[in-house]
Simulated assay, not measured.
Amino acid sequence: MTSRMPKFLDRRKICIICEGAEEYEYLERLNTLNVWNEQYKVILDNADGNGNIPARYQDRYQNSSYDLVLVFCDTEKKPYEQYVDIKRKINEFHGVDNVADSVIIYGNPCTMQIILQHWCEEKLKTPSKKVNSSLIQQCTGVENYKGRADQRKQIMEQITLENFGEMKERIKQMENDDRIIGSSNFARFIEFLTNEDDGWIEKINTLLDV
């Protein structure tokens, strides 16, 4: 009996540095659902805070164990000081203006903006958990959301292949400008990671290596 060999013997390793638990657990749920093209191995790294992202990014990039290193974070509130600082430090590390825009996956004002698109089209105006709690409850049934581990677990368990498909369509309609509240570039990276053509990795790395 002939054994079937896997299509991709050498999967492309993509490291995504996550700002915190919410980002990490969300992408881990998507990993569990096997939503990405089979040639990509998405490896997650929890930075435990946006202040740790630049150093973690530099370390993982210089490690040379990955085909590409990305960052997943939110913008928080205007004037987006910490987010802008992350971009500045990544640009300075590579010595290339604006190259951070090619490796950062963002949600403005927060990652919950992306997560809620699995169930609704509403755009968040603030990262405040207190302000957003009623919409979060409406979408997920989780009351008085404060970002606790048990609450995050309840939400992640409700993410399915079916509503992932719905989220993909909704997020395509979002503005792709990190200065605009209710925007995200996640649709771009979803397209990359679900596509068999991996040429986008080399295109990004070419920008980083100038």
Rank of each mutant, 00 (worst) to 15 (best):
K153Q: 13
P6F: 01
I190F: 02
R152T: 11
R11W: 11
M156V: 07
T206P: 01
I136V: 09
H118A: 10
E162V: 05
I53C: 12
E81F: 08
V131C: 12
T2S: 10
Q137V: 08
R60V: 09
R4I: 15
N108K: 02
Y57V: 01
Q58C: 12
A21F: 06
S128K: 15
M112R: 13
I43S: 15
Q113G: 12
V131M: 15
N163M: 09
I114P: 00
C120L: 08
N46A: 03
K130P: 06
T75E: 06
E38L: 10
M174R: 09
S3L: 15
M174H: 10
V69W: 13
K146Y: 14
R29L: 02
E76G: 00
E38S: 11
L161E: 13
W200P: 03
I86Y: 01
A21G: 06
R11S: 09
P54R: 00
E28P: 11
F192W: 08
M1P: 06
N185R: 01
Y66G: 05
D177E: 04
G147W: 00
M1E: 07
Y145H: 03
I180S: 08
E175H: 13
E162H: 13
I159N: 09
V69I: 15
A47H: 01
I201H: 03
K78F: 12
F186P: 01
G147M: 04
D197E: 15
I171F: 01
R11Q: 12
L9H: 06
K146Q: 14
A55T: 10
D59G: 02
V99M: 12
I181W: 07
T140K: 05
N31S: 12
I180G: 07
I86D: 03
C18D: 01
N176Y: 14
Q173A: 06
P54Y: 02
K87H: 05
W200Y: 13
K129R: 12
A47Y: 03
W36G: 00
K168A: 10
V69C: 13
E76A: 01
E196A: 04
F8Y: 14
K130A: 08
L207E: 08
D97R: 13
E175L: 11
I155C: 08
I181D: 09
C18E: 02
A55G: 06
P54N: 05
K168T: 10
N34V: 09
E38I: 13
P109E: 10
L27H: 08
L193W: 11
N31E: 10
F93V: 10
I14E: 15
Y26W: 11
Y26H: 03
I114D: 02
F72P: 00
V35K: 13
